[in-house]
Structure formats: C-alpha cells, structure tokens
C-alpha cells in the first residue's frame, strides 16, 4: 500500500491540527444545530462548540452536511420568518 504526495500532504496538515480529545461524528451531529445557529446569528461560540468547529476542519463528511444545513437554514429563514 502506498499514498500519493497529495494524500500525504493532506495527512500532514490533519496531523498538525490533531488534538488529543476530539468529537466523533455522532457527537458533532449532537451539537451541530446549536453551532450552526451561533454561526448564523453571530452568537459567541462556547468552548464546547469550538470542538464542533475543529471536527468540521477534519471531517469532510460532517463539513459537507454542515454546509448544506447552513444553506437550508438560510433558505428557510428567507421564506418563513416564523420557523422555529
């Protein structure tokens, strides 16, 4: 088994930002709605929610889902101000 230079470069970057304690994907999903609302409203992100941001820098799947969640929330906000 071998890796391409691009793959190794990506891995080096990921290793550089790796923390001893990280959220897994389920834990990210548990907090991502609150994180998304903070981002959209400009609310202060707590230390606990910073872990969501960190997970999103490492997990392309959760990041993809998060990006679409933001898109959906913006669209719903535009069409229905009473959405809760």
């Amino acid at each position: 088994m071998s890796f391409t230079s691009e793959q190794i470069s990506n891995l080096v970057r990921q290793v550089g930002i790796t923390r001893d304690s990280e959220l897994n994907c389920n834990e990210c999903l548990h907090h991502v709605a609150e994180f998304a609302e903070c981002e959209l409203t400009g609310r202060q992100v707590t230390e606990a929610l910073e872990a969501v941001r960190h997970h999103l820098t490492l997990c392309i799947e959760c990041k993809e889902e998060y990006d679409e969640l933001l898109k959906v929330l913006r669209a719903l906000d535009d069409s229905s101000p009473a959405a809760s």
């Binding site: 999903l29 709605a33 609150e34 998304a36 679409e68």
Partner: peptide
C-alpha cells in the same frame, strides 16, 4: 429524548435529516 433544546427543534431535525440523506 436526546433533544435538549439548545437549538431550535427544526434545526436539530434538519441536521439529522441531512445526515440520513448524505
């Protein structure tokens, strides 16, 4: 039972739906 009300319920539900979809 795991919904804790830290976000809007609809935001929480949509996050789950997008996880299922992807």
């Amino acid at each position: 039972p795991s919904f804790e009300g830290r976000s809007a319920f609809t935001t929480w539900a949509l996050a789950i739906a997008l996880r299922v979809a992807f």
